[in-house]
Nucleic acid binder design. Structure first.
Lengths: 137, 137
DNA sequence: CTTTGTACTTGCATTTTGCAAGTACAAAGA
DNA sequence: TCTTTGTACTTGCAAAATGCAAGTACAAAG
C-alpha cells in the first residue's frame, strides 16, 4: 500500500492521472471511440508499448477502465470507461478548451468549436452518449 | 525548440502541466493565496526544492505565472497568475470535484461542498477574485 | 503447419525525480 | 563589524520512470 501525499483531492487526482499519457488514453476512448490496445498504439502521440500496458493496468486497478474479452474476437480485449472514468469528462473538456485557447498549434476543430460555443451542452451530450454505452454492456 | 507530440489540445496541455506537481503550485496560488517560493515549500505534499525551482521556471516560461520582486522585501519574489494561468481554474475545480467524489481519503471541506452544490457559482466567484488581483497589479 | 493479428514482455540507454547538502546574498540584530 | 536569519536557489548522486527496439505468446485463418 502506497501512502498518499496528502488528503487534498487535487493531489489525489494527480497521483492517479498526473502524467503525460493516462488522459490521452481516456481521450481516445471518450472522444474517439477507441477500444483496444492496438487502437491506442495508433494515436499520433506514439505511446510506447510498455507505457501503454502500464497505464492500462493502473487505470484498470483504479476502476477507471474495465477490461473484457471482445465478443467478436477472443484474442482481443475491449477497454471501456466505468462511471468513475466517465466522470473525467469535464476535466478532459476543460483541458481541451484551455489547450486550444492558448496554443496556436492546436486549431479548434469541430468539437473544439462546439466547446467554445456551448461547453455545458457538449458535456451533457457526451455524458449521455457515454452513459448509454455503459448501461448497454 | 522542442517538437510537440501532436496538435491535439489535450496533448499540448499535458505537455505543459502533465505532471504530479505543476497544478499543485497553481492550486496554492489560486485557492490558498500563496505567493512565494518558501510558501510553496511548506505545502503538505513536500515538493523538493529542485523540482519547485524547475516547475516555477517552466510555468513562468509558459506565461502561466509571472515573477516580480516583492514590494516589501527586496530579497523575496512574488509569483502570480497571468490570465492564461487564471484560465486553469475550471480544470482545477473539476479535478477537485472528481478527486473528492472518488477518494474516501479526501473529505470535502468548505470549498469542496460549495463546488458540489454550485460548481458554476464557485468558478464565477474565483474568476472574479483572481481577475481583480491581476488588474490591480 | 505457417502466417497474421493482438497483446504483451524484456533489456538497455536516457531522462526525470527525489533527497540531502551546500551556496548566495540582502536584511536584521548584537 | 560580525553573526544570524530569511529567502531563493544549486549541486551531486541514487532511484525511478520513460523511450526505443526487439522478442514472446497464443488464438484464428489460410
Amino acid at each position: 500500500m502506497e501512502k498518499t501525499r496528502s488528503d487534498c483531492p487535487i493531489s489525489c487526482s494527480l497521483e492517479v492521472f498526473g502524467d503525460k499519457w493516462s488522459l490521452l488514453i481516456i481521450r481516445d476512448i471518450m472522444l474517439r471511440g477507441k477500444l483496444s490496445y492496438s487502437e491506442f498504439l495508433e494515436s499520433e502521440e506514439k505511446i510506447a508499448t510498455n507505457i501503454l500496458v502500464n497505464r492500462l493496468s493502473v487505470l484498470e486497478a483504479e476502476h477507471i477502465l474495465s477490461k473484457r474479452v471482445s465478443p467478436t474476437n477472443r484474442s482481443k480485449f475491449i477497454y471501456s470507461l466505468t462511471k468513475k472514468g466517465i466522470d473525467l469528462l469535464p476535466i478532459i473538456i476543460e483541458m481541451m478548451d484551455w489547450g486550444a485557447k492558448y496554443n496556436p498549434n492546436c486549431p479548434r476543430k469541430e468539437l473544439g468549436k462546439k466547446i467554445k460555443k456551448d461547453k455545458a451542452g457538449v458535456i451533457r451530450e457526451y455524458f449521455g452518449k457515454l452513459k448509454r454505452q455503459v448501461d448497454s454492456q
